[in-house]
Write a protein that binds this DNA or RNA. Structure first.
Length: 793
DNA sequence: GGGCCTCAAGTTTTT
DNA sequence: CTTGAGGCCC
């Protein structure tokens, strides 16, 4: 009876059997590294008698973690669920949930996502009086993130910035930002790692506990780790040193978000006793495809020497085609895929990969035109959608009310007549008395100057309390969501919006409920807190549904780790791929990273690979001519077949009249756009095509990433074409112009915010009085009487 | 408070 | 060309 390890090749076996001490597995694309990793875990448990709870396997995405757990489950007899298979972030959350008190944080902290960070940063900038023209919040957040990835504290950042005024101000922002996070009992994603490192570094007891627990540690995609993650892993492995890292330096493509390729390149320097194992046999692609990959990546200087080989057949030739316009390119690609599909290849086995998300547009248009169902990966994350964030803010508020940002987000959603002024009053009061925003709301009666708003605030607080008590009566998370939707007035408010928009939002909320139900069915103990946590760490891509047969469109970054029988790399033009930043950069590393990205793209293909580019492309609204990508020139000419010389494949189509006149015959100056909108492509189906294009146009704003052309056709009652009559259902907004003002020029008046002032001018306009007031402390202001609510003194 | 318009900006992205 | 954010207006 053979055992499960017999199916592995000798190098894979070595990776599996070398269990003690540091191990570096250099795993080329498609070399079966996940297989090696899962078998290694099985081997540790079954053959070496290691307790499952002494094993830790770390990945970057939930998807990878889930897949690995599933595969381990199948290999290991029992106890597999005691293995920690987790992402860096969820592992840190688990540690912090238990031990955050040592850092002075409460254990039920919340996690801030990119949106929360932005809101917080805006507050920080206001407080520090940072000119938004000089310092953009995006830049500041970027700088802070970089520091955290490098484990630089605000104090250290000050020291490093010494003298440089701009850097000092950034340090101010970093420090204040941290103070605010701390106050809100929140961590951002980078904090999760950095604070865990801090915890382990400063607390020997805690460190010892985890070091003892994790006797065998494995890290996947090691080339993507940043400095903080590297330190975290070193700390955890500090006692037993049984650390096995798996990665491919040639697939390091995340430098821009902090990944430090040095972690993998210098592993042997850091652990001199490390065993290095190379997995170079590729099981995925044909030899022809690998030849191209090897030829290009060989041009990189900073890499470990290795060369992929395969026992697979030579396969089809790799093809190349240059088109006149990006429009032609997209059309030819989609038609070729349609042809392949007609010949029996499933759409889900095809992918078009590109460098930037903007390139997806043209491809989408063509897919719609040719009725090819597609799946667009990338774009707006499900959990970043407004309605989802709103609902989650409700849940967070019901859960703990400690998260000021969440409470402030929903206090006036749906509209409750609690405006910015009231909010800032309450926030000021909360700051004065050192309480959370929600606590301050709870005693709104004591907050000075709230007036009528305090009534409204009270009913909001009561609403939240009501949900809380329902939760105690064993109402599930999904029931709670439904309840909030129906009783908070959120659903009704949705109905007032544009029909399509409302529908899309409701679908997304239904999807959230589905996720809640799924959570209830899978979690051991389902709690609101648990659900929020799961959701906070889940990215959209994890829920990518690959059951439907659709063509995949995505960026090269998104494609890492995936494989398709037939792959198109589109837009291979200098300035686009490699991007202009890399072309113009002094730093040669940038070009190397682009080249690695190219390598990643090429190695996604199993059977067929086509490389395409266009002479003319619309970029940022202007036509741009480009020469073909330098990476194409790095491929020996005999390795590719120029598609233009053949007829019958991708490039040939363009000439055979399929395009219907707009692209080839008529030159390109604007021809394709007008060609598209005037429906000039012959055939009897274009009416339908245009109809779908309209749906796409309208839906795409809210539904990027989930577009489903040709799949659900919503009742098309001519919506988008109706002139907006201005009759917004139920909405009656009119300025109530007072017939007369109780003050006149020269009078002293009081304003809610600006205090005392003197009226200098009153102008009567169509619907309102415009009043100018010279305030004692704020200078001259002009305002409308109906909003200013000025009181004569 | 909120709709509408102008203007600037515009790789890659997970958690 | 497209999108988002801020300014303006009623």
């Amino acid at each position: 009876m053979s055992n499960i390890y017999d199916t592995l090749n000798p190098m894979q076996q070595e990776a599996v059997f070398t269990t003690e001490g540091p191990v570096l597995v250099l795993a080329g694309a498609g070399s079966g590294k996940t297989r090696a990793l899962t078998h290694r875990i099985a081997y540790l448990i079954e053959e070496k008698g290691v307790a499952p709870w002494n094993i830790l396997a770390i990945t970057f995405t939930n998807k990878a973690a889930g897949e690995m757990r599933e595969r381990v489950d199948r290999l290991v007899e029992f106890g597999a669920d005691a293995i920690w298979v987790s992402t860096f972030h969820s592992m840190c959350v688990r540690i912090l949930r238990r031990d955050a008190e040592y850092l002075g944080y409460d254990r039920n902290f919340t996690i801030y996502d990119a949106d929360d960070q932005k809101v917080l940063m805006r507050q920080v900038m206001k407080k520090l009086d940072l000119d938004p023209k000089m310092y953009k919040e995006k830049t500041l957040l970027g700088v802070i993130s970089t520091q955290k990835n490098e484990l630089v504290t605000p104090e250290e950042f000050y020291t490093m910035a010494s003298g440089d005024y701009r850097r000092m101000r950034m340090a101010d922002a970093y420090q204040e930002y941290q103070a605010q996070l701390r106050k809100n009992n929140a961590f951002d994603f980078d904090d999760l790692i950095m604070k865990t490192v801090e915890l382990l570094q400063h607390n020997a007891e805690v460190r010892g506990r985890y070091q003892d627990r994790f006797q065998y540690i494995m890290v996947d995609e090691y080339q993507d780790t940043n400095t903080a993650q590297f330190r975290l892993v070193s700390l955890l492995a500090g006692r037993y040193k049984n650390l096995c890292v798996v990665g491919d330096d040639d697939q390091s493509i995340y430098k821009f978000r902090g990944a430090n390729i040095g972690n993998i390149l210098n592993f042997e320097q850091i652990y001199p006793e490390a065993k290095v194992i190379k997995l170079e046999q590729n099981y995925r692609s044909t030899q022809n495809i690998l030849d191209v990959a090897n030829a290009v990546i060989a041009n990189n200087e900073g890499r470990k020497d290795k060369k992929l080989w395969t026992a697979n057949e030579k396969g089809e030739a790799v093809r190349y085609a240059q088109y006149d316009t990006a429009y032609d390119e997209a059309g030819a690609i989609v038609r070729a895929i349609r042809k392949a599909n007609e010949d029996g290849l499933a759409l889900k086995d095809c992918a078009v990969l590109y460098r930037t998300n903007a390139q997806s547009r043209l491809l989408e248009e063509k897919c719609i035109q040719y009725n090819i169902p597609y799946r667009l990966v990338g774009g707006v994350n499900f959990y970043q959608r407004k309605e989802i964030k709103d609902m989650l803010a409700y849940l967070k508020t019901i859960y703990s009310g400690q998260d000021d940002l969440a409470v402030q987000r929903i206090i006036n959603i749906p509209k409750r007549g609690i405006g910015a002024t009231s909010i800032s009053k309450v926030a000021g009061y909360a700051a004065d008395y050192d309480m959370s925003f929600f606590e301050a709301l709870d005693c709104a009666g004591d907050v000075p100057g709230l007036g009528k708003a305090s009534q409204k605030i009270n009913s909001f607080v009561r609403l939240i309390h009501m949900y809380r008590s329902k939760l105690e009566f064993k109402c599930t998370v999904s029931e709670l969501i439904r309840d909030v939707l129906e009783t908070s007035g959120y659903e009704q408010e949705l109905l007032k919006e544009d029909e399509l928009e409302a529908q899309s939002r409701r679908e997304n909320l239904e999807e959230l409920i589905n996720k809640a139900v799924h959570y209830e069915n899978t979690a051991e103990e389902s709690t609101l807190g648990g659900f929020l946590e799961e959701v906070a760490l889940v990215a959209d891509i994890d829920s990518m549904d690959d059951s439907e047969d659709r063509l995949t469109l995505m960026t090269l970054h998104g494609a890492k780790g995936l494989e398709f029988a037939k792959v198109y790399l589109a837009g291979l033009e200098d300035g686009l791929f490699p991007g202009s930043a890399a072309v113009n950069s002094e730093d040669p590393d940038e070009m190397e990273e682009e080249r690695r990205l190219f390598y990643v793209g090429v190695t996604r293909a199993k059977k067929e690979l086509t490389l395409t580019c266009a002479r003319l492309r619309m970029v940022n609204g202007e036509n741009r001519y480009s020469r073909r990508s330098r990476f194409l020139d790095e491929i020996p000419p005999q390795m590719v077949e120029d598609g233009k010389k053949r007829s019958g494949d991708g490039a040939g189509y363009g000439r055979s009249g399929y395009e219907g006149g707009s692209s080839y015959g008529g030159g390109y100056s604007g021809g394709y756009h007008s060609g598209y909108s005037s429906g000039g492509y012959g055939g009897g189906t274009h009416g339908r095509d245009r109809y779908q294009a309209d749906i796409f146009e309208l839906e795409s704003r809210h539904d990027r990433g989930q577009v489903s052309p040709g799949y659900k056709a919503p009742q098309y009652g001519g919506f988008g074409k109706l002139p907006d009559s201005g009759v917004k259902l139920g909405k009656d907004f009119s300025v109530t112009k007072e017939s007369q003002l109780d003050y006149q020029v020269g009078d002293r008046v009081r304003h809610m915010k600006f205090g005392l002032g003197t009226v200098t001018e009153i102008k009567e306009q169509k619907r309102d009085f415009e009043v100018a007031v010279e305030f004692d402390n704020y200078g001259l202001k002009r305002m409308y009487a109906s909003f200013a609510k000025l009181k004569k003194v």
